[in-house]
Each structure stands twice: as C-alpha cells, then as structure tokens.
Amino acid sequence: MEYTSMLEEKVESLEKERDDLLEQLKKMNEYRKEEKAILMEEIYKKDKTIEELQDTLRDSEETIRNIHREFATYKTKSEEKARQDKSLTDANLSQLSLSEKSFVKGETRFRGNICISACEPSGKYIILENTSGAKDEDISGFQIEQYVDNHPILKYDLPLIILRVGKSIKIYARNGGGRHAPPASIIANEISCWGQGDCVETVLTNTDGHNVARHEQTRGYK
C-alpha cells in the first residue's frame, strides 16, 4: 500500500513536471514567433530604406547629368556669343577707321507688305516698315538673319509685334544707344551690334520659313 502511494506521488510529480515543460515550450514558441515577426519587420524596413536610397541615388545622378548638359549648353552659347561680339566689335573698329573715306549704298526688296527699309551702317539698328495702306501685319516670330561678306553672323527672332498700317519699328542692337519704347522701337538684347562690313545682307523670314524681305548694303570707297 505504501509502495503504491509512492508510485502515485511519483507519477503526479512527473506529470506536473511534464505540464511545466509543455508550458515553457509553449511560451518559448510564442516568443520565437514574436521575435521572428519583429525580425521580419526590421528586414522589410531595411529593404524599403535601401530601395528609397537607390531611388534617391538615381534621381541625384540624373540631376547631375542634367546640370552637366545645361552647363555644356550654356558654355557653348557663351562662347558663341563671345565670338559674335568680338566679330562685331572688330567690324565696328574697322568701320570707324574707314568711315571718313567710304560711302554706303543700300537696296531693299520684299514680297508682301513688310520691308527692311534701313540698316544703320554702324550696326546700331534695323528698321522694318509696313508698306500697306490698309492692313496691319503680325510679324511675331519672324526671324532676322544677317550675312557679312556672304558669311552668316547672327539670327534674331522677333518678339510679339503687330506692325500697324504705314508704321515702322526700329530694332536697336543692345549697344545701339536706343530705348525700348514699343511699338516705335525695341531693343534686341541678344544682339550687341548688327552686322557691318563691305557687303551686309539682311533677310527677314516669316514663321513658315519663307523669305519675305531682303536688304543688301554695300560699301564703296572714295
């Protein structure tokens, strides 16, 4: 009887120990699941951060490429403008030295109502005139091209301009000494000086690319 009682106590003790172990195992499994979930969340966040950094890096690289392209374009335009200014300045100096011994003859031709009525010999301004007696002319976006001794030297796109019946507009170069007073006159800030030389040809082209007016200016010597 006593032996049986001892066995029962032993079994009861083992069962309790088993239950305790099972409870511990259950808690450990739950803890492991929580740890795994936390770890997966951290991995997800790190992956997300890496993706965002990669996107930022790509955007930065594209921005850098755009800056390089813009700088290259600006440099090219600046160098071209410097060459143009030098060419026109040299021509202006030459013009000053020869002005007392030379004379200028101009000839204008045009199709339609707009003509190039004058090109100031020292490159200060160009005059466009509406010869129509009944119709205003929209010359917005027309382009002025100039050639000196058959070499193209400059192009200028006209801004918004409505040339009224019988009126003219004087387009000053930046260094031409004029003032911006539309519709009578404007300043072409992109042009430091209009073309000068022994043979200067000025062409006006409309927005369709057709030449509508031409002015040829030649210099003779006494």
Results as ranks from 00 to 15, higher is better:
T63Q: 12
S78C: 03
R174D: 13
L163P: 00
Q54R: 06
S5Q: 06
L160F: 07
S60G: 00
I191L: 09
G195A: 07
K124W: 14
N206C: 06
L163C: 07
D208L: 01
E190S: 07
G112V: 09
G177K: 05
T131A: 04
A173S: 14
K86C: 02
E129T: 14
Q196W: 02
S13N: 15
L21P: 00
D138T: 08
K75M: 12
M28V: 11
T76W: 03
D157P: 14
Y74M: 09
H68C: 00
Q95C: 07
I64V: 14
E15I: 11
H215N: 13
E30T: 10
L98I: 09
N113T: 06
N150Q: 05
N206W: 05
V11T: 01
R164C: 01
P159G: 14
S60L: 09
L22C: 00
R174L: 13
D47N: 10
E129P: 00
D59K: 10
K167R: 13
K26H: 04
F71Y: 08
T4V: 05
K46W: 00
M1A: 03
R219K: 09
L21D: 01
P159L: 14
E2P: 00
I144K: 01
S99V: 14
I126H: 12
Y3E: 08
S122G: 06
E79S: 11
D198R: 09
L163A: 11
L7R: 12
G178C: 10
K26S: 10
G141R: 07
I38M: 09
D157A: 13
Q54P: 00
D85R: 11
S140H: 04
T207W: 02
E35V: 12
S99F: 02
K33G: 02
K27Q: 09
R83T: 01
I186T: 03
Y31K: 15
S117I: 11
D19T: 05
M28W: 06
G220M: 10
E9I: 04
R32W: 01
H68D: 04
D55L: 03
L98A: 06
L96Y: 11
Y156T: 02
I187S: 14
D85N: 10
E15S: 09
D85A: 07
F103T: 14
K48Q: 14
K101E: 04
I161G: 05
E35R: 14
I67N: 07
D208E: 02
L158K: 03
K86P: 05
L154A: 10
K77G: 02
I127Q: 10
I67A: 07
L88Q: 08
T89D: 11
T73V: 08
T89C: 08
E9M: 10
A173I: 02
L158Y: 03
R219E: 11
S87A: 08
Q217G: 03
S13L: 15
G141Y: 05
E17Y: 08
V104M: 15
E61I: 12
K75T: 13
H180N: 15
S78D: 06
I191C: 09
G166Y: 10
D138I: 07
E8W: 02
D138M: 07
T76D: 11
Q24T: 05
D138A: 13
L21F: 12
S140P: 02
K124S: 15
Q146S: 13
E9G: 12
K45F: 03
F110Q: 13
L7Y: 09
K101L: 04
I191H: 10
E61A: 13
K170V: 13
R69K: 12
L93S: 08
L7A: 09
G195C: 08
Y156C: 02
I67D: 08
G176A: 07
